[in-house]
Design a protein around this nucleic acid. Sequence first.
RNA 1: GGGCGGUUAGCUCAGGGGGAGAGCGCUUCCUUGACGCGGAAGAGGUCAGAGGUUCAAAUCCUCUACCGCCCACCA
Length: 867
Amino acid sequence: MAEKDIPTQYDPAAAEKRWYPEWVKRGYFHANASSDREPYCIVLPPPNITGRLHIGHALDHTIQDVLIRRARMQGYEALWLPGTDHAGIATQVVVERALREEGIERREMGRDAFVERVWAWKERYGGEIVEQMKALGNSCDWDRLRFTMDEGLSYAVRVAFVRWYEQGLIYRGERLVNWCPTDRTGLSDSEVEHEEVDGELITFRYPFAEGYDFIEVATTRMETMLGDTGVAVHPGDERYEAWVGNRVRHPLDGREIPIVADAAVDRDFGTGAVKVTPAHDPNDWEIAERTGLPRMNIFNADATLNDNVPEEFRGLDRYTAREKVRDRLAEKGLIVKEQRPYRHAVGHCYRCKSEIEPWIAGMQWFVKVGPLKGPAKEAVAQGRTRFVPPRWERPFDTWLDNLRDWNISRQLWWGHRIPVWYCPNGHETVATEDPAKCAECGSAEIEQDEDVLDTWFSSQLWPFSTLGWPEATGDLKKFYPTTALVTGYEILYLWVARMIMAGLSLVEKDRTRTGDHIPFERVVIHGLVRDGHGRKMSKSLGNVIDPLDMIEKYGADALRFALARMATPEQQNLPLSEASIEAGRNFANKIWNAARFVLQADGKPELPERSRLSVAERWLLSRHHACVTAVNSALDADDFAGAGQSLQRFLWSEFCDWGLEVEKRRLAGDAKQDAANTLAWVLERTLRLLHPVMPFVTEEIWQRMGPGESIVVAEWPEPIPDLADKEAEAEFAAVQGIVTEIRQLQAGIPRELAKAVALDEGMREDSEKWLEDIRLLTGAAASFEKLDGIRVALRIPGGTDLAPVVDRLSKKLQDSESKLERKRKKLSNEGFTSKAAPEIVEKERTEAGELEEEISRTAAQIRQLGG
RNA sequence: GGGCGGUUAGCUCAGGGGGAGAGCGCUUCCUUGACGCGGAAGAGGUCAGAGGUUCAAAUCCUCUACCGCCCACCA
């Protein structure tokens, strides 16, 4: 028999190498837009091309692959569309760093050469990422692989821009932007991370231009006082009423600046007077807009001080300047109070973590979000797009409410260049194709905007640009709206919200499958992978788990199972330890060996006629049915952990621990083919159920069982209600009870036997027919002296110390007695018997009866053991 | 300053009104013809604390404490 050669250990690497290319070659992952099957589509959140996939991707991808593989087996036209993101800032920074190591500066090499280098990077790392996804087993449609800077997607970006421009949703303006002095670009509000830091709040005096009075103001950013162009107080503040309109003298550069009144000032904070730095604070910017204070920019692009400040401060970085300004004011006796540490929130760049500087970076393009919010809120409120878990809906709503216009200009080279051309006469030409001349005056001296678009501008189009939008393609018609979007909560706002707004605004309803232009019907929001102790994984902590290392060490299935096993819909932290991946490996091996056993018994996945089934087999089928039901309902609820747990329980604790063991006896007798076939049938069907989570080991076994072409395209198991068998479950549960009881007695009693103990007063009537099974399951065939009817006997050698066994039994007796006590009390409580549901009362009665039986049995056992 | 989540066995977490569960770890035993990446039997928990609702609370409600996260232009 060839099966004899099956190794006792599953070899993941061999299976992965064998099956993945085969699946791709056979085209299983390719979706057909013209098929008449129901569509099921997921677009992969495109990983950045900045480097390797990390464990978070592995989780994200595992979930998606489980969904898409199940859908494929269920007969849907399943499309999982993969791709990568150009990731503007992130990639530019990484490439710049790499160049710097070669001693090359970006600005020296020029824009075109630099962009060329980034493309080379993309070719290399983009390709690596695809290989990594394949190693995980992702069943993506590689024929549809996309990149955000593809020709098609770039065109979609231009069309989106032009359309919004024409609708007045995109405008240009000079505003204060979130400037990252390290990356030297502006950022949107969503790209700024607020973090509490310890600073100091310093109160100082502005002396009046005339006379000896002064006004006190406070700041955490002393250096910005060099750019102050006014002091503001609340209009109704009687303390300062008389001073409004007066002027104070700037103590460091001698400028006279006015005191103004503005309602934005909180009179209860600090002194009730605020220094106003319009060019470097959003609040102050607005005050200046209202009061007419001038703007005075004091920073260079790298946040060093520029020539607008007194000479001694020029060129200093902001932190050095902060101290120096304080020192100068202290020397002049103008510092009133220094409060430190003073905790306050400071914005940081989401990429490089530098402190953000509000700065005027010239003209910037903005998206007007007001008109986009409403439809997005409505789509979620109406459940056209469903959030899983739904508790994210409220924060999503609040976030939209507070959303302000979106700055989309980035002072970078890598990305989609803004499709606007300026002519010397001050006209703007906005076009999807590069124009040769100004659309308004015909001037040929046009120049394209130097900036590129925010990365998220192209990402927001992903669910439809990848399907061919703006063209009315077959893919769009077939697969849009997509079925599910799977992502971590960290980019819910940054990305998901924008896709919803963009889809609703841009996609034409009549080009979609359902007539609704929402980008996805459901958003599955999973948690973040942490280390085994719930800490964030980071290089500095040294607790990073690299998915590819894990695949190499334990196999892709092991990693996938470990990840799926912890992905409950509610959890936001998902602690992953190497031990849990090892457990996944062990599980794969367990299944492997179970299959080996079934194959050695020559099992064929065919179910014998019901009349030929043993009670144990009926029990196994019933449990299998329960597993199919549980897995289906868990997956319907996006509860991957629940599905994994059900599968593991059934296969390990039921199929292997009881099913295979009890079948060993039948396998040695006349019914052996029926027994082997039943096992094979259950195993084969359960393998299909497990396949989406553990694609490789299931395929490897399935191929050896030979029921068809590939498990990838096998039919998904749905519950078969006829398999549910309450009688068989009850009877087998009783047998399990007897077996466990005997095992408990055996523990601590050596095999060499002398003393016979009659165990079983009043045991279940039909236990006789199970005696052979019980012998086998307790592994104690030789130890049974006689088994007449309801009596089970054990022989124990003389001189055996029975005290531990008796102790254990005594403890069990006590437990049972106190349990019984509680039940009796409950049952004698009239409140309970009259108010509780009748079936609950009945259940309590039954259980009390069972406890009584157990108590007398245990007591008898203690007596027989001489306790 | 708003909001959300968490607190259950040594560790990491399920459970979500009527018998405290899993995996890992730990103890003892088992070279039983699928698997030692295995099998069997165990030890270990006033389910954070206080109050309330209920015949019945780990589970529902209120408050408190601690942990974590998200949002936020109060100098």
